[in-house]
């Protein structure tokens, strides 16, 4: 870690942190768990940064149910999510699986949910699961606050739609719903690894067992989380059976995947279908 800084600051309140980001705009960088920051520093991608503002002590470490949804503080770590039984409920299960599937336990202990969204890396698991769950993010700056769908924060690889003086304070998930379940599945080379591709799904059925809503996200298929609308188009209002699954499998992915070092677009296309099928079946099983 050879990155040189003028200072590493650990503010105690959100206001203090926002003021620092405002005053040092351009020269200050938020650090949460620091796991992606470290990678950025190793790759010399922190040019111009002179101050780190550590947001660990801002009181953003919480999970609470409110009227409008489930609020997860930005500095909640992956392991705090895994160890909180709320997330094993079908509505949130995708997030639980994504956090639990992270390739290294040591990272799970420090990496934060906020940091994972703000990194804007399309193959990370947690953000893809969040997008599948229709998560929103609250962003605060001295100029005010905004609430965005998580997918709208991704502009491209390492290019988040977040201003340098903004802090993502929390993630908001919809309240638990009935006849709803979610799942996250990733294909990896080794047991614990980054995703070659991944699928996040959330399904809501109506009283009669027909699809009321279905949301599907593919990870590492595009430079940003890819919402596969085809699935909803085909399945909307229908009863999901083998035939329907086959039909969907024929139609997805509706986009040409990007190549990676360990997998070509050809391979990704083939396995995405399988992954989708398996993830969907797991999801449906949880509803019944």
């Amino acid at each position: 870690m050879h990155y040189e800084l003028k200072d590493y600051i650990k503010p105690k309140t959100l206001e203090e942190a926002l003021k620092l980001l405002h005053d040092y705009k351009g020269a200050a960088k938020i650090i949460a768990g620091g796991t992606v920051i470290h990678e950025l520093s190793e790759r010399n991608l922190l040019e111009g940064v002179e101050y780190f503002v550590d947001i660990e002590n801002l009181g953003l470490n919480y999970v609470r149910i409110e009227k409008d949804g489930l609020h997860i503080g930005a500095t909640t770590t992956f392991n705090q999510i895994v160890n909180n039984s709320l997330f094993t409920k079908p509505s949130y299960y995708a997030l639980y699986l994504a956090a639990k599937g992270v390739s290294s336990y040591q990272v799970r202990n420090v990496a934060t949910i906020g940091g994972s969204v703000c990194s804007s890396i399309s193959f990370l698991d947690v953000p893809n699961a969040l997008v599948a769950l229709n998560a929103k993010a609250k962003l605060v700056s001295l100029n005010g606050e905004r609430i965005e769908n998580v997918e709208n924060l991704f502009l491209g690889m390492l290019n988040p739609n977040i201003s340098e003086d903004e802090i993502l304070t929390e993630i908001i998930l919809p309240l638990e719903e009935t006849k709803t379940a979610s799942y996250y599945m990733k294909l990896t080379e080794r047991a614990f690894d980054y995703a070659i591709v991944s699928v996040g799904i959330k399904v809501k059925l109506n009283e009669n067992g027909y699809v009321e809503n279905i949301r599907t996200v593919f990870g590492n298929v595009q430079p940003t989380p890819y919402i596969e609308n085809k699935v909803y188009e085909i399945a909307k209002g229908k009863y999901i059976n083998e035939d329907l699954i086959k039909k969907i499998m024929e139609e997805i992915p509706s986009v040409e995947p990007i190549d990676s070092i360990n997998a070509s677009a050809w391979y990704k296309k083939k396995v995405l279908k399988v992954l989708f099928r398996d993830a969907l079946k797991e999801t449906l099983e949880m509803i019944s």
């Binding site: 870690m1 650990k10 392991n79 040591q106 202990n109 420090v110």
Partner: peptide
């Protein structure tokens, strides 16, 4: 790997100041 507040972490990417 070392243990910080009871949790295993990678000390190579854990800022010393964070450990204060």
């Amino acid at each position: 790997t070392v243990v910080v507040n009871g949790k295993a972490v990678y000390s190579c990417m854990y800022p010393a100041i964070k450990a204060e």
